[in-house]
């Protein structure tokens, strides 16, 4: 198995004359946490979409643990261990918290889903569901309809759904966006806890959170990777400060 979890080679996504991503090549090592930052329109979410398989119209190639997945559809990528959360929460809003996690547990246990009422199968899912309720702090809300939860709790639920199949690679798109101030610290702790042992690509506009969570920062601007380095290094990088923080280059 390759030490590289995800690798993109010369990836370009064009919308007409505009390149949302322009010739991006980067390797993401196994077990590291990467922070993806850059101004709006830098191409961060597009890159995540390319890696997760939501954006298949691109040039260049994608490899996952050494295997070429350029033409692999999203659901197959999920089975290779890629989990994805979204900028705008994607949960099963009309179902209970329990059923949300139950569906996620189903795909972990079997690719075939029974057409009949299957108590033994459901019992096999129960352990995983309880563990995830515990981890995300949603145990007391298990019977609530997911759409009625506060936004912070919906984000926690989405993280729980994403984590359920035990992905080796986590693509998290602004997991703190819209989360109330009082929930940021606990959400950051949760992300930190679940990142252990996984390759994580994290997009986040909360600078304190992303700098404390990430081991390596990838800075994008206008569809290109303009800098890569440890958080401290990036903080002091003159180019980054100029394009991202809008400061004059000295």
């Amino acid at each position: 198995m390759s030490d590289i979890a995800l690798k993109c080679d010369g990836v370009t996504v064009s919308y007409g004359a505009l390149n949302a991503i322009d010739d991006v090549s980067h390797s993401f090592a196994q077990g590291r946490i990467y922070g993806l930052i850059g101004p709006n329109g830098a191409g961060k979410t597009t890159l995540l979409n390319v890696l997760a398989g939501r954006q298949m119209r691109h040039r260049g190639s994608i490899h996952c643990f050494g295997a070429d997945i350029t033409r692999t559809p999203p659901h197959e990528r999920a089975h290779l261990g890629i989990g994805r959360s979204f900028q705008i929460t994607k949960i099963f809003a009309e179902m209970t918290v329990l059923d949300n996690l139950r569906i996620a547990a189903q795909i972990k246990h079997s690719r075939f889903q029974p057409f009949w009422i299957a108590p033994r199968y459901e019992r096999r899912l129960a352990g995983d569901i309880d563990a995830m309720l515990e981890l995300t702090g949603l145990s007391a809300r298990r019977d609530d309809i997911a759409g009625t939860l506060s936004y912070g709790l919906q984000r926690a639920l989405e993280l729980g759904i994403t984590l359920m199949p035990d992905p080796r690679i986590l693509l998290l798109d602004e997991p703190l966006a819209g989360v109330g101030q009082h929930e940021i610290a606990s959400s950051t702790r949760l992300i930190k806890a679940v990142s252990a042992g996984r390759t994580v690509l994290l997009i986040e506009h909360n600078m304190d959170a992303i700098m404390s969570l990430s081991e390596e920062i990838v800075v994008m601007s206008n569809g290109r990777v303009i800098a890569v380095g440890a958080p401290e290094q990036i903080r002091n990088d003159a180019t980054v400060r100029s394009v991202y923080l809008g400061e004059e280059e000295s």
Partner: peptide, 16 residues
């Protein structure tokens, strides 16, 4: 799963 697909197709697909 079918009910899930109606409610959020992207999530269902991204789950696998």
């Amino acid at each position: 799963v079918i009910a899930g697909i109606r409610q959020n197709e992207t999530r269902a697909e991204q789950l696998g």
